[in-house]
Amino acid sequence: MSEVDHSMNSKRLVFVTVGTTCFDSLVRAVDTQEVKEALFRKGYTHLVIQMGRGTYIPTKSPGEDGSVDVDYFTFSSSIADYLKSASLVISHAGSGSIFESLRLKKPLIVVVNEDLMDNHQSELAEELAERKHLFCARPQTLYQTISEMDPESLIVYQPGDATPVAKFINRFLGFPDD
Rank of each mutant, 00 (worst) to 15 (best):
I109T: 08
V30M: 13
D161M: 06
K105M: 09
I146Q: 05
V4A: 07
D118Q: 12
T55Y: 09
L142N: 09
A93W: 01
C136H: 09
A166V: 15
R131H: 08
K84D: 12
T21E: 12
A129M: 04
L116K: 02
K106P: 06
L13W: 03
F135V: 05
A38H: 01
I155E: 12
L124W: 02
K36N: 10
S147C: 10
V70M: 00
Y157Q: 02
I146E: 08
E3G: 13
E148A: 12
V18T: 08
R12T: 10
S2K: 13
I79V: 15
K60G: 01
S153Y: 00
P107T: 08
E130N: 13
T141R: 00
T145G: 05
I90M: 00
E3M: 14
F99P: 09
K84V: 10
K132F: 05
R103I: 02
S122T: 11
N113S: 06
S76I: 09
A29F: 03
F175L: 15
G174E: 04
K42E: 05
P107D: 01
R171Q: 13
G54Q: 04
D65S: 14
L134S: 04
L13M: 13
D115N: 15
G160P: 04
H46G: 06
V48F: 11
S78C: 06
A38D: 12
A80E: 15
Y143H: 14
V30G: 07
E130S: 15
I155K: 11
G94H: 03
A137H: 00
R171S: 13
R103P: 03
D115L: 14
R28V: 12
D150W: 00
E34K: 11
L26S: 06
C22P: 02
P159K: 03
L134K: 00
Q50N: 05
V89Y: 03
E148Y: 01
S7F: 13
T145H: 03
N9M: 15
D150F: 00
E148H: 10
H120V: 09
I98A: 04
N113C: 10
T163K: 11
F135K: 01
V4R: 04
P139E: 06
